[in-house]
Design a protein around this nucleic acid. Sequence first.
RNA 1: UGAGGCGUAGCCAAGUGGUAAGGCAUCGGUCUUUGGAUCCGACAUUCCCUGGUUCGAAUCCAGGCGCCUCAGCCA
Length: 562
Amino acid sequence: MSETLEIKETKSSDFIREIIDNDNETGKHAGRVATRFPPEPNGYLHIGHAKSICLNFGIAKQYGGTCNLRFDDTNPCKEDTEYVDSIMSDVRWLGFDWQDRMYYASDYFEKLYNYAVELIKLGKAYVCDLNAEQIREYRGTLTEPGKNSPYRDRSVEENLDLFQRMRNGEFPDGTRVLRAKIDMASSNMNMRDPAVYRIRHAHHHRTGDKWCIYPMYDFAHCLSDSIEAITHSICTLEFEIHRPLYDWYLDVLKVKDHPQQIEFARLNLTYTVMSKRKLLQLVTEKHVTGWDDPRMPTISGMRRRGYTSEAIRKFCELIGVAKADSTVDVSLLEHCIREDLNRRSQRVMGVLRPIKLVIDNYPEGKTEELDAINNPEDSDAGYRKVTFSRELYIDSEDFMEEPPKGFYRMSPGKEVRLKAAYYVTCTDVVKDGQDNITEIHCTYDPETKGGTSNDGRKVKGTLHWVNASDCIDAEVRLYGPLFKSVNPSAVEDFLTDINPCSLQVLKNCKLEKSMAGGQAGYTVQFERLGYFCVDQDSSDDKLVMNRTLPLKDTWAKVSQKS
RNA sequence: UGAGGCGUAGCCAAGUGGUAAGGCAUCGGUCUUUGGAUCCGACAUUCCCUGGUUCGAAUCCAGGCGCCUCAGCCA
């Protein structure tokens, strides 16, 4: 018996964990496991980052190791403290804790400078006076080797002097660059004397104007990993070709800790743009209200839309980690959200497109308090009271005067159940001059209180409803996918791909009175309609709900077929 | 056309010489006071292709084909 339990609890392994297991067996890092999540603070975190966060923190937890949060802030032009704040809050919300291990690459600027000086002394770096365009010409192409810079053979002394003067601010941007002296004929373009430091007279979000030279990613990243004694530096596939350079810097500088870079495939999702550049464009050009717009694939957007961190973590676990490029179907994400929300969310009745329902044989002025179950998936969730009276609202989509076959909600002469209340039968409709239905009339069977008949009579449809006199008015925002294309990253002009119908605002929606005072972030399931989350824009006199996800609508499929 | 990676179902993904896990999606059916959820069932004679080795190949070998990444003083 315990055997099956163990099998059930076995963690799914992946190739990264295999590498770590192997390292632990051979004692490569003395059994230590240290990872890091290293975002550049130049935008908000999105669902793609969640995969990396879950991976890095998950591995650290599994092996009893540590995971650092490190801001890779080596390019002052793009970075901002607004982004570091949002990143910290999103990582926490996802449920991960870096404890006291929060670092910045900019913390290491002095050390990195000294490493660069060391490189020069070793004869492995030189100051190059070529401009950007010339460097590109000298670099050669994928099929032709590059040629050496005329400045490649400067003396160590001259290089040291020039590099010091670069730091002192004696040269304008773009006039000189420190380069690693490797091999201009390398088949790997990254090894053709890559830049190590560039001049940028720019204000840095943390170091201010202290520096006017900044290290490049390849130089700063491997050394930051080494300084923090990271054992496994996990990154995405596009850095695979940088690994020889990662190792070159660490080998040449003979550092004590030499982490291993491991690459995995980044997350792509159908119908979802993950490019930070494009997401930034959506924000700055105001196609969305901000980084946390519920249509955005950002962590904060998803949170505002009512996605839970548990569900996002589950998703990251299910998609797996491999080296093959892949595009996960967004239906898997939605499945994870539904599974979680179905288990935990309060059921509430809501009417998006209200139409008056009058029960003619129900006494005027009478009201009843009926018990409605809070969550059939959770036996501890209990019941709540809903008021019932002669005048109610139902959703206009739940009534058809001439129903097609297969429709089993309300239509003239057909008996249906009002959830948790009574069986009712439509007797009449009232119309205005334009043939629009303004009111539906019905009769109820007093013997069916609670929604069951004691003569065993069954009913096919169950409608949700709210009491007309004490329901809550709300604005409901229906969010669809922001993008229509299956793979928007492949679309050159992605803005043409934004779905203009992706946000539909419904005013005058009616919710049952239990929704009064709902706090932002409170997620419920409106019976039959989907999952909804109280938006942060809600106030005491205006309830704003975001639709997290619709329920799977089987009726829609039935009607499509016929 | 250089180098480095990667090809298992509609989408992810296990599998590492012993006869193709699992999840999503889809399609049936059951149940239901949500047309949701639940439950039950179906869904790769074959792993990019072609040869070879072997009693036996998705796994090993050879040769093809396809896709991704790299020519920033971005990360």
